[in-house]
């Protein structure tokens, strides 16, 4: 069963007099519960594709259906709620909120929905990511790897249908990158979540169920 269905997706950007075809007629289906890596050179359209799946970009043409919802038919507020409930985001730069503790950062998306974390799920998730001892610490007190784990926990706390990660290990050394990548895959698998990751890291790509390669806005593999 596909959780993401993309048909004839086009997204163009204007840069001065030139039009850059970031995505040029993409057709892609991503199976639920699978780990998909999107690879490609810089400027191939990876991030644009990921952001479009997240509803951050509106397609110029084509349709994007995520978990049965046609994103192009949703308004701004609907997309916000969609992201909050269906999408988990992991950024290369963690993007934790410095004024909140790790616990508060993790549960932040739930708080926006006036919801409480699942009493069983939260400790399980935290334990799995090795954050038990850091819950009351502030982000700046943690290592980069631990901060990214917190970011992963935040992405998974709402039990999203799909987790999107843009270069989640890009700023780590090889060992940390492997650990983080492993944790990401493990947690997604544990909680049966679909994982879509952009990466240049071949080792992370090797862990994927499927690798989609982009070139000049088109899928080449």
């Amino acid at each position: 069963m596909d959780i993401v269905e993309i048909r004839r997706l086009k997204k163009y950007f204007k840069e001065g007099p030139q039009v850059v075809k970031a995505l040029d007629g993409i057709n892609l289906s991503i199976e639920k519960g699978k780990f998909t890596v999107i690879a490609g050179a810089s400027g191939s359209g990876k991030t644009t594709l990921l952001n479009t799946i997240a509803g951050l970009y509106e397609p110029d043409e084509g349709t994007v259906i995520v978990d049965g919802l046609n994103l192009s038919k949703m308004g701004e507020e609907q997309l916000t709620v969609f992201r909050r409930r269906k999408i988990g985001f992991v950024f290369q730069g963690y993007n934790l909120i410095p004024e909140l503790t790790i616990r508060e950062n993790i549960v932040f998306p739930l708080g926006l929905d006036d919801a409480r974390p699942d009493a069983a799920y939260f400790p399980n998730l935290v334990h799995l990511l090795g954050l038990d001892n850091y819950l009351n610490a502030y982000p700046h007190m943690l290592s980069g790897g631990a901060q990214q784990c917190a970011a992963i926990a935040r992405a998974l706390i709402t039990k999203p249908s799909i987790v999107l990660a843009d270069e989640p290990t890009g700023s780590f050394d090889m060992k940390t990158a492997q650990n983080v990548a492993g944790l990401l895959k493990m947690t997604a698998a544990t909680f049966h979540q679909t994982l879509v990751v952009i990466t240049h890291n071949p080792e992370l790509a090797q862990l994927a169920d499927r690798v989609v390669r982009l070139q000049d806005g088109k899928i080449v593999q």
Binding site: E77, T80, R84, N95, P109, L112
Partner: peptide, 15 residues
């Protein structure tokens, strides 16, 4: 940038 982050992780305009 911070507001952008809030919006990305699901904070609505109203919030």
């Amino acid at each position: 940038r911070r507001y952008g982050l809030y919006r990305t992780v699901g904070m609505s305009r109203r919030q």
